[in-house]
Amino acid sequence: MLKYALPLQKLIGELEKLPGIGPKSAQRLAFFLLSRSDDEVGELGLAVLALKAEIGLCSRCHNYTTGDLCPICEDPGRDISVICVVEQASDLMALERSGEYEGVYHVLGGALSPVADIKPSDLYIAELLERIREMRLREVIIATSPTVEGDATGEYLRQLIAQLPEPPQVTRIALGLPVGGDLDYADQVTLARSLRGRTKMEG
């Protein structure tokens, strides 16, 4: 059987590891790159290399950054008495886009999962507790995903924070209905959960 040249085989193999890319897409991408000019392909290569060389984790919140601190931790206008805890940096970006939040973040780097062998020590949990102790916080907002893993991670954090001296208030982001959606079109699972998590109306 005819085989691709080794460099081509290697590239296809690497591309296949990317999310959403199967063997066929990987081949198409590899042949596309092969057909482009040296400059163009070089640009892509340099961009990929620069990604890991220049981007690191914020020493405070573990968001992605090119410096020591991320732009949010460097911003003097943020309220540092509130920390919002998220699983991934992409979750942080989603919350930032809402424009609603003035506090700072803490990226855990994932959620607990004994099945996938992700233990508390694999996440930035000790660092979070250290920050809470140092900063005399008002509130910690748990914004992990509403999955079993995300909920369990949130519950684990709540228990740890409660054991600290002078613990801050711990809150969980609400689960509920999509805005602008009619009640009768919301799926029943979402409706059931938002009923369970209903809040008291203050007036």
Binding site: V148, A152, G154, E155
Partner: peptide, 9 residues
């Protein structure tokens, strides 16, 4: 001690 959050779920 890390069992508690899973028990809760």
């Amino acid at each position: 001690a890390t069992l508690a959050p899973w028990t809760s779920q």
